[in-house]
């Protein structure tokens, strides 16, 4: 076995995503302009990977954040809670039926990923019961409430934005840039982290670790990029 220290560290953002194949399903952290793995997104745009399924809260603003992947027509399907009216490249391709979308309530999007990360295959929730997003889905009544069956949601890759990573992948985040990142980090086969700083093992206080190293497969150092 390789030295556990540094075996997760990659030298560049292009190398850390080099094996992402066409047709991959990828989770992208980020919300409200904070916590987006924009260096990894830009690397994916340079690589030109196609036919992606993207799991993210939204679909970017113009060509910012995930918008770049839509501008380049790299995405064929989206699982999102709020694609957003200003995600114009996505909206145009959705109107032209070039991209399909599954809308999921935001907290349920979180819980479906959390379930996958926790080894739970499915669960029932009252969210959306009686609405069009639950039409035709399996329902049961618990605690007197109509509940809808939800299935776990995983991905081939998760692209995560952290503030600091240590060399084995313990992560901390910064303020509201945490958002979806720690949840997605648990739910993908390969979790790839871009962090502002990569610090030696032992230099992060164990009491403040948000994502423990076991959830992280690859790390690249890259300064926060706002797009």
């Amino acid at each position: 076995m390789k030295d556990p220290v540094k075996r997760k560290i990659y030298p560049t953002v292009d190398e850390v995503i080099a094996d992402v194949p066409d047709g991959a399903t990828i989770m992208f952290g980020g919300f409200g302009g904070a916590g987006f793995p924009n260096n990894l997104i830009q690397a994916l745009a340079r690589k030109g990977t196609k036919n992606l399924t993207a799991i993210s809260n939204n679909c970017g603003t113009g060509d910012g954040e995930l918008g770049l992947l839509f501008k380049n027509k790299q995405v064929k399907h989206v699982i999102a809670s709020f694609p957003g009216p200003r995600s114009n490249y996505f909206q145009d391709q959705f109107a032209a039926k070039e991209v399909t979308v599954e809308l999921v309530a935001q907290g349920i999007l979180c819980e479906r990923m959390r379930a996958r990360g926790a080894g739970i295959c499915a669960f029932y929730s009252p969210v959306g019961a009686g609405t069009e997003i639950a039409a035709g889905r399996e329902e049961r009544v618990f605690q007197g409430k109509r509940c809808v069956l939800e299935t776990a949601l995983g991905a081939d890759f998760a692209f995560i934005k952290a503030f600091k990573a240590d060399e084995i992948g313990n992560l901390i985040y910064r303020k509201a840039a945490r958002n979806f990142n720690p949840i997605m980090a648990t739910a993908a086969h390969v979790t790839i982290v871009e962090a502002d700083e990569v610090v030696p093992v032992g230099s992060l206080d164990p009491e403040i670790i948000i994502t423990p190293s076991v959830f992280v497969d690859r790390i690249v150092q890259a300064k926060t990029l706002r797009t």
């Binding site: 999102a80 809670s81 109107a95 809308l103 935001q106």
Partner: peptide, 16 residues
Amino acid sequence: AKGSGGIGGAMDIAAG
């Protein structure tokens, strides 16, 4: 309405 629409947190809030 035009576009994909979006749910955001509204259904989670309504449910609980």
